[in-house]
Amino acid sequence: MVDPSLRQSPLATLHLGGREGQPAPEASVHLAERRSVGKINLRADPGDGVLMNAFESVLGYPLPLDPNRTSGDGKRGALRLGPDEWLVTVPGGQENALFGALGTAATAAGGKHVALSDVSDARTILTLAGPRARDVLQKGCGLDLHPRAFQTGHCAGTLLARAAILLHQTGDAPAYDIHVAWSFAAYLWVWLEDAGAEYGVAVGEVE
């Protein structure tokens, strides 16, 4: 086990240090980084029922097969990225174990063509929540985020400002997980703080 204290946030260059967790009574959006999440990119044929069952038995929930859908909960879940691609999340530090278990299950199920890639550090997750979170996102995101169109449990690969993101609505507050490439995270954080300025932004404690 590698010493996790050696890990660094992509936001380190922003020197947010003193501002994290500071009370911001006027704030109607809450912005934070959820760093300690293991992520595995999984590719497999969704038509292979045996394989899908094998994955479900490892994960404890089925891989979502419908467009823009997720399964599991905020800590452990799967986001559908495409017709044969998912992002599986686990609490940070458990990704190696899960990676191994998924690989073993795939082999046992006779899956000859499965791809697993550890992408825990390829992206980080910025969380945005609060009554004006949707307004902040609509400043840079062309998706229709109205509750009639995008709800808790929905996810979508899309663009936010000038960054590619994976957007996941995690709560009705509304609350969102914004998965963004490591090297774009600082840019996007600055963008989100700027976009949220008129509503008041509270910078959350980093998990």
Binding site: L81, G82, P83, E85, A156, G157, T158, L159, A164
Partner: peptide, 8 residues
């Protein structure tokens, strides 16, 4: 190609 979505 849905470059910034599913890449398909």
């Amino acid at each position: 190609c849905h470059t910034f979505g599913c890449r398909r």
